[in-house]
């Protein structure tokens, strides 16, 4: 753990929360009682609150995201956290109880981060198309294969089959959003939800990219958000907990900072080249997660262009 975790009496250490999802910070006081460690990664620890909500503690390099507190630590490796460990949520602070010590997080000085990107309603269909084309070129140049961009050159049968299913799922979903009928969109979502080997499956990442666009004020993808929310409510076990939480937030236009930065740049409406830097940051997420999310965003932008044009 980083140097900001300071020693204290009785085996208690304090670590400062540098920044946090403003909506989570506002709700944190309501989480009282005992929760648990859900999953542990080098830079992120996921916790279940007493109410069963999944939230994340990120190391300082991991960046802001919905339901996430960014803590001034380098990583979480030396705490030897294991899933199932007890976490106490008390008003004003949050304690992770370990066999030999307690880590107390203080949120008093945390910078409040807003997860919501701006509306793109002011952009003309032509600008959306130009941005989508540019992002597509970036994705195909820098994005890794293995997800929505297709199988890697020497993929085995399993990866090839997943890639084919992803491609079919995308086609089904795009046709369904064009069609606009709720039942068709739900089928399209179910063709992708939970598809892909990773913790946030590639199909879900694609859906995240479409979902955030659909949830922005003025979006023409009106049927997508309600359909996604309904599918997530009706099929809670269809994908991983983490991905379910990510999609639930995306359906309310709340996404991690790399995607917010791309959408902010889109909203500026400047030359597409200005998208290069934020798009590269987005592409760096996970193995194919960033690229898959960008693929969803690109598909969503094309749909926005088409559907606005048909109004």
């Amino acid at each position: 753990m980083g140097q900001a975790a300071s020693g204290g009496s009785g085996g208690t250490r304090t670590a400062r929360v540098e920044s946090g999802d403003a909506e989570l910070l506002d709700r944190l006081h309501a989480f009282t009682g005992h929760g648990a460690v859900h999953s542990v990664f080098t830079r992120v620890v996921n916790l279940l609150t007493p109410q069963g909500t999944l939230i994340a503690l990120a190391a300082r390099d991991a960046g802001d995201a919905p339901r996430t507190l960014v803590v001034d630590v380098a990583d979480w490796t030396d705490l030897e956290l294991v899933p199932g460990q007890r976490v106490t949520f008390a008003t004003g602070n949050l304690c992770v109880e370990l066999p030999h010590r307690t880590v107390r997080l203080t949120t008093a000085d945390a910078r409040r981060w807003r997860a919501r990107p701006p509306s793109l309603a002011h952009l003309a269909p032509g600008a959306l198309a130009a941005a989508a084309d540019h992002l597509d070129r970036l994705n195909r140049t820098y994005g890794p294969r293995g997800g929505m961009l297709g199988a890697t050159p020497y993929a085995g049968p399993m990866e090839t089959a997943v890639a084919q299913a992803l491609d079919e799922g995308r086609t089904t979903l795009i046709a369904a959003v064009r069609d606009g009928r709720d039942a068709a969109i739900r089928r399209g979502i179910l063709a992708l939800l939970g598809l892909g080997p990773g913790l946030t499956p590639a199909g879900d990442d694609f859906l995240t990219g479409v979902a955030v666009l659909a949830a922005l004020p003025g979006s023409a993808l009106t049927g997508f958000g309600p359909a996604l929310k309904a599918v997530l409510a009706e099929h809670p076990g269809r994908t991983t907990d983490l991905s379910h939480a990510t999609l639930t937030e995306a359906a309310d236009a709340r996404v991690r900072h790399e995607l917010v930065d791309v959408l902010r740049e889109l909203a500026h409406g400047r030359h597409p080249q200005e998208l290069n830097a934020p798009a590269r940051e987005l592409l760096a997420i996970g193995h194919t997660s960033g690229s898959d999310t960008l693929s969803g965003l690109i598909a969503g932008l094309h749909l926005e262009e088409e559907l606005r044009g048909s109004l």
Binding site: M158, A161, V162, A165, L193, G194, L195, G196, P201, R238
Partner: peptide, 18 residues
């Protein structure tokens, strides 16, 4: 062949097809 994946319905469907 070796493959690791989360046990979602969709991934199991792909394995079933294979």
């Amino acid at each position: 062949q070796a493959f690791t994946a989360m046990g979602t319905e969709m991934n199991k469907g792909v394995l079933d097809n294979l």
